[in-house]
């Protein structure tokens, strides 16, 4: 089956992202397709390539990246909501340029896109599961 995931919380503060990651990993292992993971609210912080956890802790950002969730065109399907991301200081190269900001912090395994991607995930997937606070 095609499953999509919505994550409403950032890493470390809440368990939501960890649970969603374990769920996604198990779904892939069972032969299901993760159509898209959509990061919303503080969930956008899961995409920061500057995350540096202590050595004996899990790296949640790298965990997500390791699942290598991509579409047929090779684009990442770890999708960060652009509106939620911009207001929280999460930018990719394109958004940094557009907004005149001299840096970007989105991990290459993720991509920034609009809220329509969440609706589309709901339409295209057999199931959509929300993880939050």
């Amino acid at each position: 089956m095609k499953i999509s995931i919505q994550i409403n919380e950032g890493p470390y503060q809440h368990q939501a992202s960890d649970t969603a990651y374990q769920f996604a990993k198990a779904a892939i292992a069972k032969g299901h397709e993760i159509f898209r993971v959509f990061f919303y609210h503080d969930g956008v912080d899961n995409a920061s390539r500057f995350t540096v956890p202590p050595q004996d802790d899990r790296n949640i950002v790298n965990n997500w990246a390791s699942l290598d969730i991509k579409n047929a065109d090779g684009e990442p399907e770890l999708v960060v909501c652009v509106a939620a991301a911009l207001r929280r200081g999460m930018l990719d190269e394109g958004e940094a340029g557009k907004n005149g900001i001299d840096g970007n912090n989105i991990h290459p395994a993720f991509r920034i896109s609009g809220l329509g991607q969440l609706i589309e995930a709901g339409i295209q997937s057999d199931r959509l599961v929300v993880f939050g606070d």
Partner: peptide, 20 residues
């Protein structure tokens, strides 16, 4: 259930509602 069982529950029970 483990996480694989969680996946099975999602598959078998239709629409998932999260009480976040």
């Amino acid at each position: 259930v483990d996480y694989a069982g969680f996946v099975d529950l999602v598959i078998e029970n239709g629409t998932a509602v999260s009480w976040v």
